[in-house]
Design a protein around this nucleic acid. Structure first.
Length: 443
DNA sequence: TCTGGGGTCCTAGGACCC
DNA sequence: TCTGGGGTCCTAGGACCC
């Protein structure tokens, strides 16, 4: 399968396909130049690369929760996000491995860099996945398919990892194609046969169709994309809502206007922490929120940004979760301010649910992001009396200076060199910090 | 070993303004 | 039978993706 190239019908090598579809179709139709490249079972493949004794075996990265599963483990039904215990039941010989998180970052970056050797029009959408439009590169490197073959060869030889690539006229179809090509495959969707290809497939391969939407579609007898395409628009919009209904209708007919975006900026940032099972008391909440605020605020400052809307999320023992948010007149990025706003919001949230005995997760999100001038003033969130009663909490400029000092020390000596009092004493966390840092996208 | 962490986008109702 | 109407912002919740 390693060098296998799939054609629409499956099995035949795409290079055997005669004359270029572009020539057949005519000038008004764009050629298939959008690549979607996706490293296969990425974390698990890296582990198997680093430790050859794991190759060919069912492995899961993680412990309490499966972060990634090898194809051998997926064959048993093991999936990312699944509790470790459930995975072990499905696959008793499953091997759990701790993650080499810095290696994931390095190898993910290196794979994207290979794409960048063919075009600057690369849109990375996660650590292991990117779109690339090679329309301007054909005079240098040959056909999109030739480029994809070379990308796959280089990632295999230089990094030792399998990567699947889909090629199509649109981003969405290229992504569908890479999923169909997996594992370790290449699939070109001929522009003349797009709908033949798409309409055969199950609806859940469409981007944006998850378990809930799949179930709703099943109630009207729609399980294949072709059936979706034949369903009237008003009917889809009634069942799925206006936006999703019309979007899925477009995708089913391969009307996907999205372009490659190379410089996407984050619209929100957040941090969350699973707590196990804790009583909703100050002793639990205050240090946890300070820790989360510290993570979020230092990232905001590093990106020169601040946010106007602060959102907290509280999850209870039965997994119900509630959110409370507030939008401020100005953006903020100071650890202490975000922490205090979050404390107030959590207090409000808990006051609405007085019967809850346990909380299992706290989260802080910041949105409405804005580029921020250097200095921010203290928000008049509390009365002067409150301020006077807590002389230990500096205000305004003093706080901002303290935050920048902490940022500078961490820059030189590492994240753990200094912390915010209680935040530094935070209980051991269930997920390694390296993993969280991996998941953090740049602003 | 009961269920991670970081995001995006959409909906629906209400407030508020013109 | 009688309460206008449209745009924008805010809030809470939910689906989905990697």
């Amino acid at each position: 399968m390693e060098t296998g190239t799939l054609d629409l019908a499956g099995g035949r090598d795409a290079t055997e396909r005669a004359p270029s579809a572009v020539a057949l179709i005519g000038v008004e139709r764009r050629a298939a130049t959008v690549l979607h490249a996706d490293l296969d079972a990425f974390y698990a493949s890296v582990e198997q690369l680093l430790d050859p004794s794991l190759r060919g075996k069912p492995i899961a990265v993680g412990g309490g929760v499966v972060l990634a599963a090898s194809y051998e483990a997926k064959a048993f039904g093991v999936r990312g996000g699944m509790p470790g215990r459930e995975a072990k039941q499905l696959c008793p010989q499953l091997i759990f491995v701790g993650g080499h998180f810095t290696e994931y970052q390095r190898l993910g970056d290196a794979a994207i860099a290979v794409l960048n050797d063919f075009t600057p029009a690369v849109e990375r959408i996660s650590i292991d996945e990117a779109f690339a439009d090679v329309a301007g590169s054909e005079h240098l490197f040959g056909s999109p398919e030739a480029m994809a073959r070379e990308v796959r060869r280089r990632v295999r030889v230089e990094l030792g990892l399998p990567i699947s690539i889909g090629i199509a006229r649109t981003k969405h179809l290229a992504k569908v194609a890479s999923q169909v090509a997996k594992p370790d495959g290449l699939l070109v969707v001929d522009p003349a046969r797009e709908l033949d290809f798409l309409h055969e497939l199950p609806v859940e391969l469409l981007w944006g169709v998850g378990p809930a939407t799949k179930a709703r579609l099943a109630t009207i007898g729609v399980t294949r994309i072709g059936e979706l395409a034949r369903t009237p628009g008003y009917s889809l919009e009634r069942i799925l809502g206006q936006a999703i209904g019309s979007k899925l209708g477009d995708l089913a007919w391969n009307r996907d206007p999205r372009r490659i975006v190379t410089d996407r900026r984050a619209r929100s940032i957040g941090a969350q922490s699973a707590l196990g099972r804790k009583p909703p008391t100050r002793h639990v909440i205050v240090p946890a929120l300070l820790h989360l605020a510290d993570r979020v605020a230092s990232r905001l400052r590093a990106g020169g940004r601040g946010g106007r809307t602060i959102t907290v999320r509280v999850r209870f023992a039965d997994f119900r979760a509630i959110t409370r948010s507030i939008t401020l007149p100005v953006s903020i990025a100071a650890t202490g301010m975000i922490s205090e706003v979050a404390q107030d919001l959590v207090r409000i949230a808990l006051a609405d649910h007085p019967g809850e005995r346990w909380i299992t997760l706290l989260a802080i999100g910041v949105s409405h992001l804005e580029d921020q001038a250097e200095l921010q003033l203290e928000l008049p969130l509390r009365s002067r009396n409150d301020e006077r009663r807590s002389p230990g909490s500096p205000t305004g400029a003093a706080r901002w200076v303290a935050d920048r000092a902490v940022d500078a020390i961490r820059e030189r000596f590492g994240r753990d060199a200094v912390g915010y009092g209680a935040a530094a004493l935070e209980a051991p966390r269930s997920v390694p910090d390296a993993f969280r840092e991996l998941a953090e996208r740049s602003l």
